[in-house]
Design a binder for these strands. Structure first.
Length: 593
RNA sequence: GCGAGCGUAGCUCAGCCUGGUAGAGCGUCACCUUGCCAAGGUGAAUGUCGAGGGUUCGAAUCCCUUCGCUCGCUCCA
């Protein structure tokens, strides 16, 4: 029941998006193209506002974050270094009978007796199927059970009666080629690469393969040194980027939620490794003290920084109209973490089709810079004079203590990675030694906290959250449904509608146009003189316009004391107030900031 | 990629079973009207019935293929 309702709600939202010009299907006259969406006039304004607010919040209002705008196509080696070429393609295979899909490398290994068939014929019609098929059954089971499964298979191939051909059996151990549920032979594994490929240069051969970026983050890592060298920033600092990314999703679904072309808003915030923080400021701050809700402090290690960014991001969402009650924080469990992450928090929104991810805030350690250093052969280390000096001043026992703790952590990591217990201690010690030799000179690879948000997902969340059907009763006692988009004034595509009360009175129209021109320079304004005033208000309700300004006869001076005043109508409450035109701009600007 | 369902005007949908050549409501546009919350009047536009092919004298309707949407499987940095 709840599901039906949420589907209906989603359909209404999709329908409104099209009707009012928020979102269109891409390439519509050609039948559309799966996983691609266009923004119409209102959607475009909404998206611009959201990206602009993100940019302001993340960069302009801070001293410690700068911007980058990198290309979508980059050197293909980058995607080897980042791990996308390998981990972004999963071999898949299907059960030939039930069509169930498996990750080819994650099928439970099966042992038993395999029965192979070369095909089957239908004795009643003489029809034959030449396709070979195999079934694996436990060795203690009779061949009949294998034949039963094989019969199913050939029935699906169009035979009514099945006479199996060329049966032969062999024993098989630990095979991942058979469906654990029914023993049926799986299809050959097929690779699924989730990166979109293209060719650079006129010749489309393997030498010239390039990829459309599946995330904007890697460009930031790759340009990290250039930004550091030119921006007069020092660690800790961040690089922000907004831009398109592309993923060849298996199943684009849920309207714009999972698209193949989408826009990301990403920050890579580079911090000192905990050892450097400790040398500089003493023991790293504890997360539990809630200091991360304040301004950044020198004694913050990666965990506090991580919490800090989670909090910052939640505040951002609240600031544009997504209340905390519609959001969820999900701390990924250790076994769910991606290969690069130390900790990841997902910020989820309760969409009508389910609670889904809006943003992931990952603590990536120094994984990415290490990878690019390795693959490019160039150094990504920073020189940090403060750390060098601080380390030099540290007492020997403290140095030793920090060193030992780091060695222990590295040892655990190595063991977890599968390095043998005999080799791991020496390797951990060697790694720690190399690290501290560099640290003593002020050299290290920064660690990274990555808040990575999906712009299109956020737009969708804002639209879903804003959509409301309200029962309104007029003075005559008639009840009707008002559809209103309660978009936060900050993000609303149109900030104010300007209406002459009547359009057949030239004086009203002239005055209204004057008001429009006054406001236009400062915000997006929509002028409308068509139909009854109530209809114009309601039309703007569906567009999410927070304010309406109406010019009437009092504006013109019918009642002298009201001359040059207008009606300001509020979308959410439908309340009206009277105020002088001279105060209008100040009032509206305050409300939309 | 597989399975199921769906695709008719801008939107919501009827017509399809039982082929005869397309409709409703809302919306849109113009003019009039309208003295503050969508339903007044007059007039107008709009559909290759998702696309292609087949059967037929004739296809929105029956058959095949294809594309898109929804759900499930699967996947999801």
């Amino acid at each position: 029941m709840a599901e039906v309702k949420s589907n209906e709600l989603m359909e209404k939202i999709v329908s409104l998006c099209k009707r009012r010009g928020f979102v269109f299907q891409s390439s519509e006259p050609y039948g559309g193209i799966q996983g691609f969406w266009d923004y119409g006039p209102l959607g475009t304004e909404l998206k611009r506002n959201v990206k602009e607010l993100w940019w302001q919040t993340m960069t302009r209002f801070r001293d410690d974050v700068v911007g980058l705008d990198a290309t979508i196509i980059m050197h293909p080696q980058i995607w080897r270094a980042s791990g996308h070429v390998d981990t972004f393609s999963d071999p898949m295979c299907d059960c030939r009978i039930t069509k169930k899909r498996f990750r080819a490398d994650q099928v439970d290994p099966q042992s038993g007796t395999a029965y192979h068939y070369t095909g089957a014929v239908d004795p009643s019609t003489g029809k034959s199927v030449e396709e070979p098929f195999s079934v694996l059954i436990p060795s203690n089971k009779p061949p009949e059970s294998a034949r039963k499964v094989a019969t199913q298979f050939f029935v699906l191939r169009g035979l009514k009666e099945v006479q199996l051909q060329g049966e032969r059996s062999e024993s098989v151990a630990d095979s991942i080629r058979y469906n654990p549920d029914n023993g049926a032979l799986l299809t050959e594994p097929r690779p699924f690469n989730l990166m979109l490929k293209t060719y650079v240069g006129p010749v489309a051969d393997e030498e010239n393969v390039a990829y459309l970026r599946p995330e904007t983050a890697q460009a930031i890592f790759v340009q990290f040194k250039n930004v550091l060298d030119t921006s007069r920033q020092t660690v800790p600092f961040g690089i922000a980027q907004v831009g398109k990314a592309f993923r060849n999703e298996v199943t684009p679904r849920n309207f714009t939620f999972r698209s193949r072309e989408f826009e990301q808003m990403e920050l890579e915030f580079f911090i000192r490794p905990d050892e450097a923080v400790e040398a500089l400021a003493g023991p790293v701050a504890e997360v539990s003290l809630e200091g991360w809700k304040q301004e950044p402090q020198p004694n913050w290690g990666w965990e506090v920084w991580h919490k800090y960014w989670v909090e910052q991001r939640l505040r951002f969402y609240e600031g544009i109209g997504l209340s905390r009650s519609t959001l969820e924080e999900y701390w990924q469990k250790p076994d769910e973490l991606a290969h690069y992450a130390r900790a990841t928090v997902d910020i989820l929104y309760k969409f009508p089709f389910g609670t889904q991810e809006l943003e992931g805030i990952a603590a990536r350690g120094d994984f990415d810079l290490t990878q690019h250093q390795k693959h490019s052969g160039k150094s990504f280390e920073v020189f940090d004079e403060e750390v060098k000096n601080a380390w030099a001043k540290l007492e020997e026992p403290r140095k030793l203590e920090i060193h030992q703790r780091t060695t222990a952590v590295r040892l655990q990591a190595l063991l977890k990675k599968g390095v043998s217990a005999s080799e791991a201690p020496a390797q951990a010690e060697a790694e720690a030694k190399a690290f501290f030799e560099k640290l003593a000179k002020g050299h290290y690879l920064p660690h990274v906290i990555e808040p990575s948000a999906g712009a299109d997902r956020l737009i969708l969340a804002l639209i879903c959250s804003a959509y409301e059907e309200e029962q309104v009763t007029d003075e005559k006692g008639k009840t009707e449904t008002r559809v209103v988009m309660r978009l936060h004034p900050r993000v609303a595509p149109i900030k104010v509608g300007v209406f002459p009360l009547l359009k057949n009175r030239p004086e009203l129209v002239a005055k209204a146009l004057e008001v429009r021109d006054l406001l236009r320079a400062h915000m997006s304004v929509f002028y409308d003189d068509a139909g009854a005033i109530g209809r114009r208000y309601r039309r703007q309700d569906e567009a999410g316009t927070p304010f309406g300004v109406t010019i009437d006869f009092d504006t013109l001076g019918e009642k002298p004391e009201l001359k040059d005043t207008v009606t300001l109508r509020h979308r959410d409450s439908m309340k009206q107030e009277r105020l002088p035109i001279s105060e209008l701009l100040t009032r509206l600007l305050a409300a939309i900031r």
